[in-house]
Computed example of a mutant assay.
Amino acid sequence: MFGKLQGIKGDEVTIKLDDELNMYRLNRFASHQQPTVYLDIDDGRKISPDQRKKIFAMLRDMEQWIKYYYYAQTGSEAFSMADCSMDTANKFLTFILDFCFANDIPFKTKTWDQIPTDYHLAVQCLRYRKCVICGQPHSDIDHFTPVGRRNRALVDHRKLYFECLCRKHHTERHQLGAKSFIEKYHIKPVRLSEDDLISLNIMTRKRMNEIDGEM
């Protein structure tokens, strides 16, 4: 909350708030106890209350924008984050996750650690070359299923499982062994669609057709 100082009388201060006070929210945040107020006077040497207010307002606008963008892209009905269903929340979370991947918006390490490592995340990590464990960009596409000494150009990669790992975790995987590595980090290697295999230059449509013709 922000406001303008109206007057001071002894140990009493009068402030005119910029916006109407929501008593319900105030009581809820204060756990229905006597609220404690922190008074910070703008001295011109650090961020001003007006600047802070504008920043918070813009962040709220950005939050609303991503929701409206979600409605437009998915046809979803409007919902509130306060009481929406778990299914709606999961779909919106997946949409935000995809938006961050597509626009190369980095994740903080703490945030990344809280994202469940499911099939969708594993595939997006492979598509955008981000480590499935730490989110490091420009990571390696690793064959969980060993290819061995076979010529990779002749292998049917549609039958194999993959994971995306940064150099550090790729090295650790080889040191620990595949089984111990996935048990440590609770990740699940995934198969890639034909379109993903082509876009990632792992296979060509020609090679797929050749393999299918040999069957």
Rank of each mutant, 00 (worst) to 15 (best):
M1Q: 07
K4N: 04
Q6R: 13
D11Y: 12
E12N: 06
D18Y: 12
D19W: 06
L21R: 08
M23Y: 14
Y24N: 06
Y24E: 12
Y24M: 03
R25T: 05
L26D: 04
F29D: 13
S31D: 15
Q34K: 13
P35L: 03
D40K: 14
D40S: 12
D42T: 15
G44Y: 10
G44M: 09
K46L: 08
K46N: 11
S48T: 13
R52H: 10
A57Y: 06
R60M: 10
D61E: 15
D61A: 14
M62E: 14
E63V: 09
W65T: 07
Y69A: 14
Y70V: 03
Y71E: 02
A72K: 13
A72P: 12
A72D: 14
E77R: 06
F79R: 02
F79G: 00
S85H: 09
N90K: 14
I96V: 13
D98I: 06
F101R: 01
F101A: 00
K108N: 07
K110P: 00
T111E: 14
Q114E: 15
Q114C: 04
D118A: 06
D118W: 13
Y119T: 07
A122M: 12
V123P: 00
C134Q: 03
C134F: 08
Q136N: 09
S139V: 09
D142G: 02
T145M: 01
N151S: 11
R152E: 14
V155F: 07
H157A: 06
H157Y: 12
Y161L: 10
E163W: 15
L165N: 01
R167Y: 10
R167Q: 03
H169P: 02
H169R: 07
Q175V: 03
G177H: 06
F181Q: 01
E183T: 04
P189Q: 02
P189F: 09
V190S: 00
V190N: 02
E194R: 12
D195R: 11
L197E: 02
I198R: 02
L200E: 07
N201L: 09
N201D: 11
N209F: 04
N209I: 02
D212K: 07
G213C: 09
M215E: 09
M215C: 07
